[in-house]
């Protein structure tokens, strides 16, 4: 679900153009979530600030229920995330995994790697100067 939450809405739309019939249990709605941190990274929690989130719940033919929680305010994004969640519970799971989730995962890990490589290029290599007393 993290892969769907992080996906760019346009990309998910391109990968899942056809929308199977569904009934909303909760129509897509935009709200916010309070993000928490921990003091010192590991201590007591505190409230850092909020982020926008859009969520949706729906049922597809066959009865599978899908939930979508995605970052941002795109309602179609949340709806598609819920659809994928529902489709992954049925016979279409293999197809959805190959056609939707695998490409999203590949792109996201590619982006992560690209950032890590840029960071690696800025890693400082220290070298010790020869001391004068010898």
């Amino acid at each position: 679900m993290g892969v769907l939450a992080r996906a760019r809405p346009a990309q998910l739309a391109a990968l899942l153009p056809d929308l199977p019939a569904h009934d909303y249990l909760r129509a897509p709605e935009t709200g916010c979530v309070m993000v928490r941190g921990r003091i010192g990274g590991a201590g007591a929690p505190f409230n850092l600030g909020e982020m926008t989130v859009t969520r949706c719940a729906l049922k597809i033919d066959g009865g599978a229920v899908g939930h979508g929680y995605v970052q941002g305010r795109d309602k179609m994004h949340a709806m598609r995330a819920a659809l994928v969640d529902a489709l992954m519970q049925g016979n279409d799971a293999g197809r959805i995994e190959a056609e939707v989730l695998a490409p999203l995962r590949a792109e996201q890990s590619g982006q992560r790697l690209a950032r890590a490589e840029r960071a690696a290029a800025t890693k400082v290599e220290f070298f010790t100067m020869v001391r004068g007393e010898d």
């Binding site: 916010c32 979530v33 309070m34 993000v35 941190g37 921990r38 990274g41 590991a42 929680y69």
Partner: peptide, 13 residues
């Protein structure tokens, strides 16, 4: 905006 809840504390490690 309605608030859906609070996140788990982010893991900065």
């Amino acid at each position: 905006l309605p608030r859906f809840g609070a996140s788990q504390p982010v893991d900065t490690d």
